[in-house]
Amino acid sequence: MNQKVVLITGCSSGIGLALAARIAKDEKKRFMVYATMRNVSKGEALVEAAGRALGRTLEIKQLDVCDEDSIKACVDSLPERRVDILISNAGMGLIGPIECQSIDEMKTVMDTNFFGLVRLLKEVLPDMKRRKKGHIVVISSVMGIQGILFNDVYAASKFAVEGFCESLAVQALRFNLNISLIEPGPVITEFERKVYDEGLKTDLSKADPVTADIFLNIYLKNYKQIFETLGQTAEDVAEHTLKIMTMEDPPFRHQTNTLYTPMTTLKYADPNGDLPIDTFYKMVFEHDKVFNASLNFIKLLCWRSRKSFTIEKDKSN
């Protein structure tokens, strides 16, 4: 059986864990998954999720996207150093007023979310080019298209990822390679819970009273409700990603959450860029009751039909 080799980063929890388990359990056993994480001692949840696939179609390896030597060692350990599908998933979040964030914190986010991808590609891309075969799948975000209040640095890192991949995609075509950006909206994972918990600990002493009030009483107050209303599960995102991976002609961009699509569409509706900014401003500051009513209505629709977050499974499986 000619299995495709899949290398996934950030598999200790969340989307990465769901991806690794789902792909390794592919009914046709089309993939050999190397699920990586910075600290392999945190692999218990993946071991449990993988079940019988562990040691058969899934192996756990150490890889730190912020360490070039770690990346090289991991790729060197693969048979013939071959990677057919690279899934760049490892990432970190950061929320809050920029006045309250250190430059070092911001650099860490960029180093992980953007330069982590760059390091991976510097190691894997040359062989893909040589073989003229390969698929680069990047777990991006709708925040790589549309900036969101108090996610300034995280959005910047995802904008960087999107611009980098959009530029690289032109060259990739010359080598018969595919690049796909998977763009989830809110996803209910431990990643998001950790970001929220860290946000609660933010020292707001450097922020002015108005900014601090907006962060505490508008942003954090609505954070959980937005995720409960619009949020997908990591398993939903994994299904979408598997679908894109198995397409003969995969798209460059794919948004996984149709409920969030109207918000990102605003950006393309106005070349001046004012429409999405004005719309978000009014949602946040002028139409609080309408905003909450809309969320409750969407929540009702989702409760009545959970199909809102699913895609048709590949019938060929």
Rank of each mutant, 00 (worst) to 15 (best):
D278Y: 08
V40S: 09
Y268F: 15
M247E: 06
M32Q: 15
T256G: 01
D208T: 04
R193L: 10
D152A: 13
E166N: 04
R22D: 13
F280P: 06
K313F: 01
P250G: 09
Q101A: 00
T211E: 10
K224D: 13
M143N: 14
Q146V: 12
L7T: 02
E59T: 05
A24Q: 06
E198Y: 11
P209E: 06
I136E: 07
P184M: 06
E44D: 15
T264C: 14
T264M: 10
L177Y: 02
S77N: 14
D249S: 08
F285K: 05
C100I: 10
I23R: 02
L19Q: 12
A45G: 15
D270Q: 10
V109H: 10
P97S: 09
V170C: 07
H287Y: 06
L168G: 12
N151T: 00
M143P: 03
N151F: 11
A172H: 06
G134T: 12
A18M: 01
Y223G: 05
T108W: 06
P250T: 05
I15N: 12
E27D: 14
V284D: 01
L121P: 04
T112V: 12
K61V: 13
Y219Q: 13
Y223I: 08
D278Q: 11
R131S: 03
N217W: 08
R306L: 05
